[in-house]
Structure formats: structure tokens, C-alpha cells
Amino acid sequence: MAAPEIVVGTVIILGVVVVGVVIKEALDAYELRGSSTEEVEPAPQTKPAPQEPSANRKTKPEPSGQDWFPPVPTEPLERERRPECRPVPVRHLGGNDPHNECADKIPNNSFPGWDVLVNGKNFDGMVLTTRTLWDVKTDDFEKQPPRSQRFFVRMKLPGLRLEAKLARECRYDFIIGVRSAAHEAVLFDEDPTLKVVVMDWC
């Protein structure tokens, strides 16, 4: 058995050593934390902007597609058409009063009293609501013998086909107005693609 003073001294020395070890570990841990904060700096963070109370904040409407792109029209705009396709009222040609009166009475004629210039050609009438151009024939067709009737139609066909083509180029319909069913029948026989109407108002 050792002397009591030696035992007490040993305990004191051991206590000092234990306390020293604890202090050293604490210092080492503190230095480790300090060095890590010096070596790696955190990325700067932006502070969120203070938000207004929901009662005072105005909701911003989401932009619709029309805010970014103009609406596409279903019908082509007048300014986008070829200038020669715009209908221009002009004086009646020829001075044939019965013919002009018949043309003026075309149902829903948009320009009574006038011819209509479209694509370089004077048409006898026009109905804008249906986009239709008219050529009126007021000859006494039914009074001619059949052979003369067919000759007359064949002579006129190139001009009628040209008018139909000019109207079609400008996206208009084309109708030939005649005074008799005989005239309509021969025209249809010679060219079934042409639209022919018997004018019961003439």
C-alpha cells in the first residue's frame, strides 16, 4: 500500500492531465472550425424582397397569346389583296340603256348605275356580300335559228372564259346573266363549267 500523500498526489496529477487533455481537444476543435470558415467562404445569398401584405398586393395578369402575337384574320385584309382586285365603280360602257337597266337590277347589286372594274375588266355588276361578278347578255337569242345561236355562243365563249378567269384570280365568283332558257342551254352545252342564270327581271 502506498502512502496516502502519494495517492493524493497521483490523483491530482491525473486530474490535471485529464483537464489538460479536455482543454487541448476543445482548442483543437475551435481552431478546426475557424480554419474551415476561413478557407471556404459561403456563396453570397440575395435577400428576398419584402413582400407586401396580400390585401395591398395587386396580382399581375398573365400575358395572353394575343398580347404577344396579333390575331390572324380569317379573311384576307383588303390591303393585302392585289390592287387590281379591288372593285372600282366606273361608268357604264356602250350607252345601251336596256342592257344597263337590266344590269342595275341584278339582285343585291352593290353598285347599281355603274360597271365595276376588277382585274382590268369592266363587269356589268357585282354583289359584294357573295363576292360575285356578273356579265349580262340581253340579246334576243331565242329569236335566232339554232345554227346562229350556237355560232353566236362560240364567238362569245373566249371572252366569257377570260372574264371567269379574271374573276377567279381575284377570288370572285362569276355569273353570266341571260334572258332566255335557250341561251342558258346552249352556253351550258358548250361549257358546263360556266355559271349561267336566266334573268327574270329583264
Results as ranks from 00 to 15, higher is better:
residue 27 L to F: 06
residue 197 V to Y: 02
residue 168 R to M: 05
residue 109 N to I: 07
residue 5 E to S: 15
residue 179 R to N: 09
residue 7 V to P: 00
residue 12 I to T: 14
residue 7 V to H: 13
residue 24 K to D: 05
residue 156 K to P: 00
residue 143 K to I: 08
residue 153 V to N: 09
residue 188 F to G: 00
residue 54 S to G: 08
residue 163 E to L: 04
residue 27 L to M: 10
residue 128 L to E: 12
residue 107 P to D: 08
residue 18 V to C: 05
residue 96 N to R: 11
residue 105 K to D: 08
residue 46 T to A: 11
residue 18 V to W: 03
residue 113 G to I: 03
residue 159 G to H: 09
residue 32 L to G: 07
residue 137 K to N: 09
residue 121 K to W: 01
residue 5 E to L: 14
residue 135 D to A: 02
residue 139 D to S: 09
residue 140 D to W: 12
residue 45 Q to K: 08
residue 202 C to T: 05
residue 130 T to I: 12
residue 16 V to S: 12
residue 173 D to W: 04
residue 57 R to S: 04
residue 117 L to R: 06
residue 182 A to K: 14
residue 16 V to A: 15
residue 166 L to G: 00
residue 111 F to A: 04
residue 151 F to T: 11
residue 84 E to T: 00
residue 170 C to K: 02
residue 176 I to N: 01
residue 59 T to Q: 03
residue 96 N to P: 02
residue 29 A to M: 06
residue 28 D to K: 10
residue 157 L to M: 15
residue 40 V to L: 11
residue 49 A to L: 15
residue 78 E to T: 03
residue 37 T to G: 07
residue 110 S to H: 04
residue 131 R to S: 14
residue 71 P to S: 15
residue 137 K to P: 02
residue 179 R to A: 08
residue 5 E to M: 06
residue 1 M to G: 15
residue 25 E to W: 07
residue 11 V to T: 04
residue 54 S to K: 08
residue 166 L to Y: 07
residue 63 P to H: 03
residue 152 F to S: 15
residue 21 V to G: 10
residue 190 E to M: 07
residue 134 W to D: 04
residue 73 P to M: 12
residue 68 W to R: 10
residue 69 F to I: 09
residue 18 V to Q: 08
residue 2 A to K: 03
residue 30 Y to T: 15
residue 58 K to D: 06
residue 120 G to M: 10
residue 158 P to V: 00
residue 161 R to K: 06
residue 183 H to E: 15
residue 19 V to E: 04
residue 173 D to G: 12
residue 148 S to A: 13
residue 21 V to N: 07
residue 94 G to R: 07
residue 161 R to E: 04
residue 196 V to D: 07
residue 36 S to V: 14
residue 24 K to Q: 06
residue 41 E to H: 11
residue 59 T to R: 06
residue 48 P to S: 14
residue 160 L to I: 00
residue 200 D to V: 10
residue 172 Y to N: 01
residue 67 D to Y: 02
residue 13 I to N: 08
residue 12 I to G: 03
residue 6 I to K: 10
residue 176 I to S: 05
